[in-house]
């Protein structure tokens, strides 16, 4: 289509051969980007002047976070543990549920294409929904507290792990599966012995990776009342008690660091 609007230029070589030079997309792309930028500046009210004049406020806040309020630490343990519990439970249950869901979404195992497409669509929608939004909805149903956060993480984990898992299953080697089906195993049995071993290491590794990310998400879920340390964060910022915010962020950073390294260690062992 592009070639029709911007006709390729003809170049004739000295020996008479003709080459069609494709028009470069670059100027068009740059123009679109420029227009989009101007438009965005307009819509968002972006102003360099405000930044220059008031950016110091940002650093004032940052400055007040240091030194952090160490005395606040004892009050942090409980919410911090809640955050970890939420992500652990949500990830574990989510990863377990993801397995049957992924099977339902694999076109090479499930013969009904309607089921497969519906499950895939639902997974995409679930994956797209930001965790904070599903946590917010969950607080309305399950009340304020860790339960809502766990549900949000649970749902996201299903969507994330199941997507990567069904891609794996669909790309798995089917020879053994077909052989087993032909000697009379049920589809589930054939899956268990022929495909599951192929995708297992990746499944575990994906689940661990998802857990890592979930710890980060879980830390802010408290902001919408879904339990964990996020509640204290929003309190600290609301009351402008930045030294408290500082210590929370520090503890959070350390926790995330430890969990990421532990999980990375095990993931490397898996693959």
């Amino acid at each position: 289509m592009f070639d029709k609007i911007f006709v390729p230029k003809k170049i004739i070589l000295p020996n008479g051969k003709v080459v069609l030079e494709k028009r470069s997309y670059t100027p068009l792309i740059l123009l679109i980007l420029l227009i989009a930028t101007i438009f965005s500046v307009h819509i968002t009210g972006f102003s360099m002047e405000v930044i220059v004049k008031r950016i110091k406020e940002f650093f004032v806040i940052l400055d007040q976070m240091i030194p952090p309020n160490w005395e606040y630490t004892p009050k942090l343990w409980q919410p911090l543990m809640d955050t970890i519990k939420m992500s652990l439970l949500g990830s574990a249950l989510g990863a377990i549920v993801a397995l049957p869901v992924a099977i339902l979404a694999s076109s090479n195992i499930i013969k009904s294409s309607i089921v497969v497409s519906i499950v895939k669509l639902l997974l995409s929608i679930l994956r797209t929904l930001p965790t904070l939004v599903s946590a917010l909805i969950a607080t309305f149903i399950f009340g304020l507290g860790t339960m809502a956060g766990t549900v949000a993480i649970f749902l996201f984990t299903i969507a994330y792990v199941a997507k990567l898992l069904y891609e794996q299953i669909e790309n798995a080697n089917m020879d053994a599966y077909e052989a087993m089906e032909s000697i009379g195993l049920t589809r589930i049995q054939a899956f268990r012995y022929a495909i599951f071993p192929q995708v297992l290491p990746n499944y575990l590794s994906t689940s661990l990776f998802c857990f890592e990310g979930n710890v980060r998400y879980a830390s802010i879920l408290g902001y919408v009342g879904a339990g964990g340390i996020g509640l204290l964060l929003s309190e600290g910022i609301g009351w402008r008690n930045y030294a408290n915010v500082g210590i929370i962020l520090l503890m959070l950073a350390i926790t995330v660091f430890i969990i990421e390294n532990l999980s990375e260690h095990f993931r490397k062992k898996l693959v």
Binding site: I11, L13, P14, N15, V19, E21
Partner: peptide, 12 residues
């Protein structure tokens, strides 16, 4: 354009 022609000739 000349340089492009030379380059294309070299490819030829």
């Amino acid at each position: 354009k000349e340089q492009k022609m030379q380059a294309l000739s070299a490819l030829d």
